[in-house]
Design a protein around this nucleic acid. Structure first.
Lengths: 209, 209
DNA sequence: GTTTAAATCAAACATTTGTTTAGTTTTGCG
DNA sequence: CGCAAAACTAAACAAATGTTTGATTTAAAC
């Protein structure tokens, strides 16, 4: 589906508010004010607040689809190099979409049974499939050891990155990095996270147990 | 502070509802009904809904304090063995307190500036301190390599466990474990998580980069 | 220029919300 | 018992909520 300029305006206002105060902590009046639209426009365009959230999930979900595929299929790279690309790609994604990622994190904790739950599952399925194919490729050509718990490894990548980004205000204080500006800090965690996850995966995938 | 039986009754009803529907998605009437108390009792005992949440954080926070200390100081164990104990202890904690952990996860994503934010920071500080001391002990006696990013390693433990437990409904489907009963599944993720994190830490702490 | 549909708006709507009130019952103690 | 403090209750309260209404403006097509 294609969204009009005004619809995007509303979705992005909602995104930043949902990230800051939570879905139920944000009123449609808050959203209307931030997006500079009339209150009734939200029901007019999206039907309801709940459906606005669904639209946001669709909107952000679309933006992620194809990138991963191209990494896995890029020729002339070792499987480990591809894993590295995948890690950096994932880190970039959740850092550049922090607001959405906060919303996603909060939603996946709830026992949703609605459409959003389905969208989350679909995202996770796609992720896991691609990583699985990549790991298996590396196993076939002898780069990686056998007996790797791929869902658990994926959980470590997602969990580590997610935890760091969604609770970075605590990480900043715990690591005594308060002196850094927001930009510097962002760059710091991006690099630290990349280095950490790559090391982790390298030794996990190649180490003989 | 000591809580009366009725107060605990209210806190535990609130805990399960907050975990299921979120803080703002749960009304005080829901809580009163689930706890089998009169609506006004919540304000009477806790002052407000917000303060009830704070009380819950205090209540659950108390229960975690001393355990870790005793692990680190237990004699006759290698540093790696202590790390293993710590991992299992942490996994047990969040599995046995899943409801609270869901609430904690959702709260730490928000830019809280209130008392809860302070409590979360304190918990994280304590965790990090203990782990740091343990790692440094292992480094001094040559068990562990140098140059370990301890905050990042902690993030991996917390993030992996947290992500798995708070979104286990997705993990179950992604790993094709729907056939397992809830108890069997719980035991499965406990063991898989323990094995995975121990391997991760072992190679991360002892592997020469 | 007229017409028709889409977009926009202020106001109103019915619920639900967290909290308080004012009164009643229970409890513990001298 | 007598009585004061604590525990408990039903009802009421004002504020905030998501959504709808009905009217008005804008835009596009003929």
């Amino acid at each position: 589906m294609q969204y009009s300029e005004k619809q995007v305006q509303i979705m992005e206002a909602a995104e930043s508010l949902f990230a800051e105060k939570g879905f139920n902590g944000t009123s449609v009046r808050d959203i209307a004010e931030k997006a500079n639209v009339n209150l009734a426009m939200i029901s007019y365009y999206f039907g309801s607040k709940e459906k606005l959230l669904e639209a946001l999930f669709n909107y952000r979900g679309e933006m992620t689809k194809l990138k991963l595929e191209s990494i896995v299929q890029s020729p002339g790279r070792t499987a480990l190099e591809k894993v590295y690309l995948l890690v950096d790609n994932y880190i970039n994604k959740i850092i550049s979409q922090q607001c959405f990622h906060r919303i996603l994190t909060r939603e996946q904790v709830l026992n949703n049974t609605g459409p959003i739950s389905g969208l989350i599952l679909e995202m996770k399925k796609t992720n896991l499939e691609i990583i699985s194919r990549l790991i298996e490729e590396g196993q076939k050509n002898g780069e990686f050891r056998s007996g790797i718990d791929i869902p658990m490894m994926t959980t470590t990548m997602v969990g580590t990155a997610s935890n760091l980004v969604t609770s970075k205000q605590y990480y900043k204080e715990l690591s005594n990095l308060q002196a850094l500006s927001e930009d510097e800090f962002q760059q710091y965690i991006q690099e630290a996270l990349s280095k950490h996850l790559k090391l982790l995966f390298k030794i996990l995938l190649t180490h003989e147990a």
